[in-house]
């Protein structure tokens, strides 16, 4: 069981953000404790990606604050987020298609030689190590990622997020393109990272895997938070009802 007595690792307080007239996220508050996996669920366009982008620095919220370890955090851009050891796997993967896996994995954080030049061999060696764990069948180390399959690309994006000792990990549908074996691998990695005390936001449309992997599930609809529930205390049907109907089931509302 996750200990939720201390200060939360992350607290999103009353976050709102609108694009033109569309309220993509509307006064949402969610928290995340060390070693906890919080699932984010909701229909397409519910605002899940937008919410976590405020934490990853891709967007700046209109109102509301982010607290990290109980202290207010200013996250204006992705660089700030990295400074707080927040790593993100974006739904769009955010890979530079013209570069190879190693260049993408280390993008913005290249290994350099004492002369300040990029150390390609060292980066490739490290990439081989991480990818060996994530996707042992991966061989295309010298091809641009545009030449990779959807799942291989996703593996590269996951490798990038888990390689750099994150404290807070955001995974936006990380297994959408993965085969069963690779998905299982990601599940194992999530368990492992959990044990290390890392907090994870996991966006996933599959209610069953949320129930299996997550400690709590937060459901959104039309930009608003429907509710946050302990996955052990609800059935998959309850969660589905929240996603579709947009309100907490009677027996949980209290």
């Amino acid at each position: 069981m996750v200990d939720r007595s201390g200060t939360p690792l992350v607290e999103l307080r009353d976050i709102s953000i609108a694009f033109g007239g569309v309220k993509a996220v509307d006064h949402v508050s969610v928290d995340l404790f060390p070693g906890e996996v919080v699932g984010l669920l909701g229909h397409n366009g519910a605002g899940k990606s937008t919410l976590i982008k405020c934490l990853s620095g891709a967007y700046r919220q209109d109102t509301g604050d982010v607290y990290i370890n109980g202290e207010k955090a200013t996250i204006n851009n992705p660089r700030d987020a990295r400074r707080y050891n927040i790593e993100t796997i974006y739904q769009t993967l955010a890979l530079a298609d013209n570069l190879d896996a190693a260049s993408n994995l280390f993008l913005g954080r290249e290994i350099v030689t004492p002369l300040g030049l990029v150390d390609e061999s060292a980066m490739e060696a490290e990439t081989r190590k991480v990818m060996g764990r994530l996707n042992p069948n991966f061989r295309k180390f010298n091809a641009p990622v545009s030449a990779l399959s959807g799942g291989q690309r996703q593996s590269v994006a996951i490798a990038r997020a888990v390689y750099f000792n994150a404290r807070i990990l955001i995974m936006d549908e990380p297994t959408a393109a993965l085969g069963p074996a690779e998905t299982q691998m990601v599940a194992e990695i999530i368990q492992e990272l959990k044990k290390q005390g890392i907090g994870i936001f996991l966006i996933d449309h599959d209610v069953h895997s949320v129930k299996r992997l997550c400690d709590r599930a937060a459901v959104m609809k039309n930009g608003e938070l429907v509710g946050v529930v302990d996955v052990d205390k609800v059935s998959t049907d309850d969660i589905l009802a929240m996603i579709i109907a947009g309100k907490k089931p009677e027996h949980l509302a209290a």
């Binding site: 990853s56 891709a58 851009n77 992705p78 660089r79 990295r82 993100t88 974006y90 769009t92 993967l93 955010a94 890979l95 530079a96 298609d97 013209n98 570069l99 993408n104 993008l107 913005g108 954080r109």
Partner: peptide, 10 residues
Amino acid sequence: GNPDAAELSG
């Protein structure tokens, strides 16, 4: 190759 990815990579 991908301006958005570059920006998101810090």
